[in-house]
Amino acid sequence: MDPCPPPDPNQRGIGLSVRGLCKSYDGHPVLEDINFEVRPGELFVIMGPSGSGKTVLLKHLIGLEQPDAGQICVGGVPVGSPEMLDRHRVAMVFQSGALLNSLTVGENVGLYLSEHRLKPPEEIRRIVAEKLALVGLKDVEDKMPSELSGGMRKRAALARALVMDPQLILYDEPTSELDPLIAVTIGEEILRLNRRMGVTSVVVTHERELAFGIAHRMAILFQGRLLALGTPEEVRASPHPEVQRFLQAGFHFDSPSEANQGAPHHEKHP
């Protein structure tokens, strides 16, 4: 079988495949024999506890890390080959936003267009305003990234990814460190972009509510290995004990009345 099948010309989104991916740092394995496929237009979620290798895996998918073994193909082109980013538009939304601090928000969002000279400056300004409005940001073009809140920075980073008109978007922990209201907005935005534009999306997260709410298919990564892969229902039904432990983990505090019984009594002084 061809490890890098060509993309479907009728689909806007592009697929990706990972075969036998292994990576270790200083002899310590971080990813071990990872195999999965993301279909064009699919919203695929990679879940797992902190330190399980999710972000490292995501970095491999866009060529920011080189695998020790295995092959990754995006839209039929091996990742790491010079033509991958020339032939396909792949965007990544970083956990921290990774906006360039020396540029304004508007310059950040339009950076792809201005650096590759794809549009004239007036057109870039119009597209930047349009994409910022799409993620719910207005009148922030002239602000510096340091003047934005964490949620606004993430949304600006999302706008920067959208400017590329991507065929594949990779999201690294898109809702971490955000309050629930903003997190819901971002989650809805990811879903809306996938449905409306048909963009293939890979989301890395450890938030179960978001993952099960948006995923077409998902994978659970634990200590560098894929323990479960399939639709949300199939993953929920996985018999693997670590998967069940991760999915069912929650706060189990004593009820307030029981807690009060154990609390020290304070004498009341007249």
């Binding site: 866009i62 920011l64 792949v90 990544m92 990774a98 906006l99 601090n101 650096e115 590329m164």
Partner: peptide, 13 residues
């Protein structure tokens, strides 16, 4: 360190 260089690479810059 703060992944801005990585962000440039992902934009093919």
């Amino acid at each position: 360190v703060y992944q801005e260089v990585d962000a440039l690479r992902t934009m093919n810059i």
